[in-house]
């Protein structure tokens, strides 16, 4: 099972990185979401999983039976899920705001931070004119 989980996490990582490298903001966001899933799976796998052995303690002993899965990473995952939920919600609102202001979700058009905004706007208008009607 660990093998399968590892493969899944690997595929998720690959898909996430592919998506993050896309030009569209929405696709980048999907990439970040996939990345957080991949990491949650990785954390889950890091517990040395044992099937069907919950970490419950017998009535007459102090320790759970041997070879149980470590529950701590699951607590990590819960925390990570909550945090990534908040961050994703913020990222979506920010992207909505970007779309409102720029009217585009193309990352290549976001160059106001490097050159003055007026130049960016002139350049993109010229590109529009060059496009065949």
């Amino acid at each position: 099972m660990v093998f399968l989980l590892a493969i899944t996490a690997g595929v998720l990582f690959a898909a996430a990185i592919y998506m993050i490298l896309r030009r569209s903001l929405m696709k980048t966001l999907v990439g970040l979401l996939l990345l957080s899933y991949a990491i949650n799976l990785l954390l889950f796998t890091s517990a040395d999983l044992v099937p069907a052995r919950p970490a419950l303690v017998d009535a007459d002993s102090l320790l759970p039976p041997a070879m149980y899965a470590d529950p701590v990473p699951q607590a990590f995952i819960l925390t990570a899920i909550v945090i990534s939920f908040g961050l994703t919600a913020f990222a979506i609102t920010l992207m909505r705001q970007v779309y409102n202001i720029l009217g585009s979700d193309d990352l290549n058009e976001m160059r106001c931070t490097d050159v003055p905004c007026e130049e960016v706007e002139i350049a993109s208008e010229e590109e529009l004119l060059e496009e065949p009607l």
């Binding site: 993050i20 980048t28 990491i39 990570a80 976001m110 931070t113």
Partner: peptide, 23 residues
């Protein structure tokens, strides 16, 4: 807003890398 997009995406990436290192 444009600066924030770049800052947010790269820092989210860094946080996820940190988390995988922790795992």
């Amino acid at each position: 807003i444009e600066g924030a997009i770049k800052y947010v995406i790269l820092n989210l990436l860094s946080s996820t890398l940190f988390l995988s290192a922790l795992g």
